[in-house]
Amino acid sequence: QKEELKEKAKEAVKRGNKDKARELLKRAGISEEEAKKIIKKIE
């Protein structure tokens, strides 16, 4: 489940939808700070 949400978040970032990505990562139980780092890494 968590990995699936991370994959979806990756796709969202690639489409330029960072808010959606952050939302998905939060749903995966990832903190706001972690989510920001992950999104930065994907960009």
Rank of each mutant, 00 (worst) to 15 (best):
E43K: 04
I38Y: 10
S31F: 03
D19R: 12
I38T: 02
G16S: 02
L24P: 01
A21L: 06
E11F: 03
E43V: 07
Q1A: 13
K36L: 14
I38N: 00
K18R: 10
S31P: 09
K10S: 07
K20W: 14
Q1H: 12
S31D: 10
E32M: 07
K14V: 08
E23R: 06
N17T: 04
E43S: 06
K18Q: 08
K18F: 15
K14F: 10
E23M: 05
R27P: 02
R22L: 15
L24V: 03
E4T: 09
K6R: 10
K40F: 13
G16T: 02
I42M: 12
G16P: 01
E23Q: 06
R15L: 11
E43Y: 07
I39D: 00
G29K: 02
I30L: 13
K10G: 05
K14C: 09
K20P: 01
E11L: 10
I30D: 00
E7P: 00
K36G: 10
K41Q: 15
K37M: 12
E4N: 10
A21P: 00
E11C: 09
Q1F: 14
A21S: 00
A12R: 02
Q1I: 13
E34M: 07
K10A: 11
E11A: 08
E43I: 10
K18N: 10
E23G: 03
I39P: 00
K2Q: 13
I30N: 03
I39T: 01
K8E: 10
D19I: 09
V13R: 02
K8P: 00
I39Y: 03
K26R: 12
D19E: 11
E4F: 13
E33D: 10
R27E: 14
R22T: 11
K40H: 14
E3D: 10
E23L: 06
E7N: 11
E11I: 08
K41R: 11
E33F: 06
K14I: 11
E32W: 08
V13S: 02
R27K: 13
E32L: 08
K26W: 06
A28G: 05
K6E: 11
E7W: 08
E11S: 05
A21N: 00
K10R: 13
A9G: 01
K37W: 09
L24R: 01
K14M: 14
K14H: 11
K40G: 09
E4H: 12
E7C: 12
Q1S: 14
A21C: 08
D19Q: 11
K36N: 15
L25S: 00
A28Y: 05
L5N: 03
E3M: 09
R22Q: 10
G29V: 00
K37A: 13
L5E: 03
E32H: 06
V13L: 12
L25A: 04
E3W: 11
K40A: 15
S31E: 07
K18E: 06
K10M: 12
V13E: 01
E32T: 06
D19L: 09
K18Y: 15
K40S: 13
I39V: 05
E7Y: 07
E3P: 04
I30G: 00
K36V: 13
I42A: 09
N17S: 05
E3N: 10
E3L: 09
D19F: 07
K6D: 04
E34K: 04
A28K: 01
G16C: 07
L5D: 04
K14N: 09
L24K: 02
I42G: 03
K8I: 08
L5K: 02
L24Y: 10
K40W: 15
E4K: 11
A35L: 05
I42K: 03
E43N: 04
E43M: 09
G16F: 04
E4I: 13
A21Q: 01
I30E: 03
K41A: 14
I42S: 05
K41I: 12
K40P: 01
A12P: 04
K2W: 15
E33Y: 07
S31N: 06
L25D: 02
K26M: 15
G16K: 03
K10N: 05
A9Y: 04
G16I: 02
Q1W: 15
K37Q: 13
I38V: 04
G16H: 04
E7Q: 11
K41S: 13
L24H: 04
I42P: 01
V13Y: 10
R22F: 15
K40V: 09
S31Q: 05
A28F: 05
E33M: 07
K36Y: 12
L25N: 02
E3K: 08
A12Q: 10
I39F: 04
K20G: 09
K10V: 12
E4D: 12
Q1T: 14
R15T: 10
K41M: 13
A35S: 07
E3I: 07
